[in-house]
Design a protein around this nucleic acid. Structure first.
Lengths: 272, 272
DNA sequence: TCATACTGGTGCATATATGCACCAGTGGGA
DNA sequence: TCCCACTGGTGCATATATGCACCAGTATGA
């Protein structure tokens, strides 16, 4: 019993009490206490192969589970605004996938506040200055925005002119005198159209329908667009997950991959 | 997780912590915590048959060991409806204990169908006309019921009157036009209250809140109560145990003791 | 015969598990 | 929309398990 205690890394008194407790529950003695040590009773002898089998099954499962957790395979679900998915992240997703071909990345392109509590997604990209406290993650960049216009459009419609014919490409209705216009250098321009989606807004600006106040990360890759103001930090970009998922291997490597791109993303979101 | 805690007879917070501790040891999540409850993960699904098999092996061994036990000492666990425990059986339990002071009797007063396979109880008192086939035992009495009322109450509220003001003490909601009222001599009386527990119903009848249709075994010992109908046999009283435990000495002597009281119990349950 | 090295058992202080009471969140029904 | 009945989670007091230090008994070797 003293040697068993050493194997189990507990005190011999603990082993003694555990055996006594088990015997009480079973209503049977498992060992005779002899001066030379514990000796199995017939009931104890019967229990021996059973307990060995139980132990084997538990160990096998434990190994299986441990193996699975470290396996880099399976699906991960990432939610992010579609504009970010299309304009910024697809090259990175592709690179990650080539690095870990057994991992399937599913992008849920949405602005909706997905509930990570409900496993609607495993990882969320969030543009916020106040990330939810129940999620864990890291800020990977700060999103900057600026006023953009097509180079030909701003030549024909000088927004600085006294009675400028330039117009805004705006967001959804109703949006009278929004702050981003009031605080811009061209607060008196009229609205050309209202579009809910930054991708559509980028298309509109590119097609010379007006000026847009949009993220640098999505606008700077269009050579015909020119920036009319200096970039301004608007909100942080977070990569978040639920704390219960922090040890899941494939999620961890994905997050670490994204974190390894933080320098590039910082530059990208700040504008060049 | 809350229902599991009830089954295990521990606090739900204990179950929560045990699961968390097990997940920590395994390094794997066994459950997703959703707002509507715990949901097995793939690792948890894999563990389910293993843990069920482990449990079966432990229970089988436990039954085998207990079945072999020849000593007249230790604990026996008896489950019976609390109303029967309180009103009928306590004197017999006390007598048994004085006969076998080395045996500890634990009464689980419950109506729930205990799982004798799982050692949730060793002996069960059951009021049924169809005892489970996998249990062995003997019918020790037949329970008779009758309509009772307080003698003063039935003087003031003649239930036979044309427009009687007497009322029923009934069971839990919803219970519209139950058979036991429809088939009684006073089917048109109104309900005074709804009570789930025969002990409470007895109290209500004794306190002149109404009439009750209740077992003679619990009502005849109250001198102020009068019987308004002849007793009717309702169901049999069985004393049951698991077949693997039929040779366990202390369970055997307990059952034999109860069987030796069958004549008394028969009279008691029939009403006097 | 005595000293030493083992054994199993236990009192007591401490570490850990548990239950209680409460919290916040969610869904359904009125 | 609000109330109620559920869910999972947690702080704190208490119950229980554990480790330490010690005990008594036994066997062996000098």
């Amino acid at each position: 019993m003293r040697m068993a205690a050493k194997d189990l890394r507990v005190s011999h008194s603990t082993v003694s009490r555990r055996i006594e407790a088990l015997e009480g529950k079973l209503g049977a003695r498992l060992f005779d206490r002899l001066p030379e040590g514990y000796k199995l009773t017939p009931a104890g002898i019967d229990l021996l192969p059973i307990s060995q089998e139980l132990r084997s099954q538990v160990d096998a499962y434990s190994l299986k589970v441990l193996g699975r957790d470290t396996e880099l395979e399976g699906q991960i679900c990432v939610t992010m605004p579609d504009v970010i998915a299309v304009e910024v992240m697809m090259p990175y997703i592709a690179e990650f996938q080539s690095l870990y071909p057994a991992i399937t990345v599913r992008i849920d392109d949405s602005y909706e506040v997905y509930d990570l509590n409900r496993r609607e997604a495993d990882i969320a990209f969030r543009f916020t200055n106040e990330p939810p406290e129940h999620l864990i993650g890291r800020r990977v960049a700060t999103a900057y925005e600026a006023v953009y216009g097509h180079k030909d459009y701003v030549t024909q419609h000088d927004p600085n002119a006294q009675t400028s014919t330039a117009r805004w490409v705006g967001w959804g209705l109703p949006e009278d005198n929004p702050e981003w216009i009031t605080n811009s250098p061209f607060p008196n321009l009229k609205m050309a159209c209202h579009l809910n989606n930054p991708l559509l807004q980028k298309q509109a600006v590119t097609r010379q329908m007006g000026l847009g106040y949009l993220p640098c990360a999505i606008m700077d890759n269009e050579p015909d667009l020119v920036r009319l103001t200096d970039p301004t930090p608007v909100r942080d970009v977070w990569v978040l997950t639920h704390r219960d998922l922090r040890d899941t291997a494939r999620l961890r490597v994905f997050r670490e991959f994204i974190f390894s791109k933080a320098a590039e993303l910082t530059v990208r979101f700040r504008g060049t």
